[in-house]
Amino acid sequence: MAEPADDAPAVRRVARVVLLDPLDRILLMHGFEPGDPSDDWWFTPGGGLEGDETHEQAALRELAEETGVTEVELGPLLWRRRCSFPFDGRRWNQDEWYFLARTAQTATAPGGLTELERRSVAGLRWWTSAELSAARETVYPTKLAGLLRTLLDEGPPSTPVVLAPEFVQGVPPGAPGGTHG
């Protein structure tokens, strides 16, 4: 792997949660580009580590802030993924860790959203595996439907699976000379 250029954005350490309810439905967030609500997608709850917190601590904190779900049994690390994408006028480079979690608490109440999240999150939805497999909407990571099916059929992997990196092209909106997409 090449060394990043001096002006390359730092890699953000992120903890994400694959939250399953007693019916094995997964909770996803509905996000969109703040300047273009028609540019939307679904994704797992989670976010960047703060200070010296662990990935597990960040996963639980982010889950509580973004969904209001606090009655959680955090399970193993399932997957890791590197990704890069334009969002809100800049490029984000992330090292994401996906943890399995289970809950009986299906009511959501996102009360700790950041200002950016308030401008870019349309809501939350519980999805069955079949609904996710049939979805025509954009979902991240892009192979989540298959990953979820494998998880439900085979259980968590014995060691975390490293997913293929995802690099979304496009210049962030507002950047000189670019359009989003």
Rank of each mutant, 00 (worst) to 15 (best):
E62Y: 07
E62Q: 09
E62V: 03
L63Q: 04
L63M: 02
L63W: 04
A64V: 08
A64Y: 07
A64N: 06
E65N: 13
E66V: 02
E66R: 03
T67N: 03
T67F: 00
T67D: 02
V69K: 01
T70C: 10
T70V: 13
T70S: 13
E71T: 08
E71F: 08
E71S: 10
E71W: 06
E71H: 09
V72M: 01
V72D: 02
V72Q: 02
E73L: 14
E73S: 14
G75D: 00
G75V: 00
G75Q: 00
P76Q: 06
P76S: 13
P76G: 06
L77G: 00
L77K: 00
L77E: 09
R80T: 15
R80N: 09
R80M: 14
R80F: 00
R81Y: 04
R81M: 15
R81G: 11
C83S: 15
S84R: 13
S84M: 06
S84I: 02
S84D: 07
F85Q: 00
F85K: 01
F85C: 01
F85R: 04
P86D: 00
F87C: 00
F87Q: 01
F87P: 01
F87V: 02
F87S: 01
D88G: 09
D88S: 13
D88Q: 09
D88W: 04
G89C: 04
G89P: 02
G89Y: 02
R90H: 10
R91W: 08
R91F: 01
R91K: 08
R91N: 08
R91P: 03
W92Y: 13
W92I: 10
W92V: 07
W92T: 06
N93F: 10
N93K: 11
Q94E: 15
Q94C: 11
D95W: 14
D95I: 07
E96I: 10
E96V: 09
E96N: 15
W97F: 15
W97G: 04
W97S: 10
W97I: 09
Y98D: 10
F99R: 02
F99S: 03
F99G: 04
F99A: 02
F99N: 02
L100R: 04
L100S: 06
L100P: 04
L100H: 04
A101W: 05
A101G: 08
A101D: 06
R102N: 12
R102Q: 14
R102V: 14
T103F: 05
T103E: 06
A104C: 09
A104S: 14
A104W: 13
Q105F: 12
T106F: 08
T106N: 06
T106H: 06
T106C: 08
A107E: 09
A107Y: 04
A107N: 05
A107H: 07
T108R: 04
T108P: 12
T108V: 12
A109K: 08
G111C: 13
G111K: 12
G111A: 11
G112K: 09
G112P: 10
L113R: 13
L113F: 13
L113H: 14
L113S: 07
L113D: 10
T114S: 15
T114I: 11
T114D: 08
E115K: 14
E115R: 15
E115G: 12
L116A: 12
L116V: 12
L116Y: 11
L116I: 11
